[in-house]
Simulated scan of single mutants.
Amino acid sequence: MHVLVLGAGFSGSAIAKAFLPAAQSVTGTTRSEEKASGLRTLGIDALVYDGAVISSELAAVMKRTTHLIQSIAPGRDGDPIMREDAPALGGLMPNLKWAAYLSTVGVYGDHGGAWVTEDALLEPVSARSVERVAAEQAWLAFGKASNIPVAVLRLSGIYGPGRNAFCNLAAGTARRLIKPNQVFNRIRVEDIAGAALFLSGRATGGIYNVTDNEPAPPQDIVSEAARLMGVAPPPEIPFETAELSPMARSFYGENKRVSNRRLRDLGFDFRFPDYRISLADLWSNGRWRG
């Protein structure tokens, strides 16, 4: 198995690490040589790729790739691998056997706090989520046309070592914004990696929500982290009076409860099925710092 992770950032590098023990080679791409050096310290082969120019080195890696994870976000021009002016993927990766595309639960848009499954109507609100829908469709169409299993992983709010409520509390940036009835799903980065490894091992394609079991108000996560740290939680701030960037405010415009039953019914066990288990783990072993 030769694995290529396009966009080995927070989630992509975790996926690459998960594949290391079973693969003959694992390569990740990033946009800078500094970040590439960081990947190499983890034992991951690393190449610089800006999402536009495919170097001869990357082309050689693509040629041998059997398992692909695409984690680069699309832009206005579409997915960097699937857009019309990109070389045909079948020609770039003649040995490809399975692929995963990392998407977002943002493709569902706002469902008024109702539960949504992978079959729910897609009503993306933000431009970035509209772009994700188009990218999902392109990858699924490629899989159908090439008879290669393509798994679309719709991810909820990602956190883990070095990126969590403990870090925000320690930095003094944590806030408890109160918007009545607002809930969000979350996902530990290790469970994203585990889901990708699980689906690849079964050569399984399709659409899967990769998210925890318990959508919850965002202020509850901050309060639980503060309790574990033994510090006072920040004061509650009404959402209406909070100073937020347009992007941050747009997240609160979408309210839904995302189901992960399809993935669990397939046999996947989440290591961190809810935020309490996850935060307790991060705090007890000190890995919250990253």
Rank of each mutant, 00 (worst) to 15 (best):
R154V: 07
G12H: 00
L96A: 02
Y275I: 07
L122S: 02
Y101T: 04
R163L: 09
A16P: 00
N147P: 06
G90V: 03
T104P: 07
G51P: 02
L140F: 01
A100M: 03
E243W: 02
A195N: 08
P234E: 00
A193M: 07
D220L: 12
K97E: 13
A22E: 14
A100I: 00
H111G: 00
Q182R: 01
K17E: 15
R163P: 09
G90A: 08
R227F: 12
G172H: 03
T173L: 08
A127Y: 12
T41R: 11
I158L: 14
A114E: 13
A18T: 05
P235W: 07
L177W: 08
G253N: 14
G253F: 13
A23Q: 01
S259C: 11
G9H: 07
Y108C: 07
A193W: 08
S278K: 05
G109Y: 07
K35P: 01
A59G: 05
G267F: 11
L122I: 09
V53M: 07
F251A: 09
V130C: 08
N168C: 09
A73G: 12
H2Q: 12
Q70V: 14
V26N: 06
I277D: 08
R76H: 12
I81F: 11
M229I: 12
L140K: 02
V210G: 02
G160L: 08
F10N: 11
L89E: 02
G172A: 05
M82N: 06
P180Q: 03
G112I: 13
A52R: 15
T41P: 01
A145K: 14
M82R: 05
G28Y: 02
L68M: 03
W288L: 07
L121K: 11
G230P: 01
A59I: 01
L96P: 04
A52H: 15
M229T: 09
R289K: 13
I192S: 06
L263T: 06
S13G: 10
P215L: 10
F270G: 06
Y108Q: 04
V125Y: 04
P273V: 04
E214S: 11
E214C: 10
F239P: 04
M247C: 08
P218C: 13
R227G: 06
F10E: 11
A196K: 01
L39S: 09
R287N: 12
D79M: 12
L58D: 00
R261E: 15
P80H: 14
P233F: 05
G172C: 03
V5C: 11
K17S: 13
Y49R: 04
R257S: 15
G162K: 11
E57L: 03
P215R: 07
L68I: 01
N164A: 00
N164R: 00
H111F: 01
P87C: 12
T29C: 00
D281I: 09
A232W: 02
A18K: 14
Y49F: 15
S278H: 10
I69Y: 13
R289G: 06
V210L: 03
